[in-house]
């Protein structure tokens, strides 16, 4: 009874002009053109977007959860990267 799944595509939508595309979910489709059609039908039935990207899911490389500390904790001790690190006189502190 089962037929093999069509390839999976991740869907990204730009909701308004000036905003970045944002991941909204995935669709199965035979190819990229068909993925766009399916994404349109599934994710933009109510003016949710002005542009759609589809990307084959198997082409995405993701960071592993185990790498979380190595990748993301170092900036925590680099507080000098934040503007609040620099103490300025009140007269110029709006800078």
């Amino acid at each position: 009874m089962s037929t093999a799944d069509w390839p999976l595509f991740e869907v990204f939508i730009r909701s308004r002009h000036g905003l970045s595309h944002k991941h909204v979910g995935s669709v199965h489709a035979v190819d990229a053109t068909n993925a766009l059609e399916n994404a349109r039908e599934l994710y933009t039935r109510r003016n949710e977007g002005t542009s759609i990207w589809v990307v084959p899911s198997n082409t995405i490389t993701a960071s592993a959860p185990e790498q979380k500390d190595a990748l993301f904790t170092s900036p925590v001790d680099k507080i000098y990267r934040h503007p609040s690190f620099y103490e300025l006189p009140a007269a110029v502190d709006k800078m």
């Binding site: 093999a4 799944d5 979910g25 599934l42």
Partner: peptide
């Protein structure tokens, strides 16, 4: 559409939609 969103979410757990 709701069915599709949900199948999509289930697939992230490593099951196929055909399954």
């Amino acid at each position: 559409g709701h069915g599709q969103y949900l199948y999509s979410a289930a697939e992230t757990l490593g099951v196929g939609r055909d399954e």
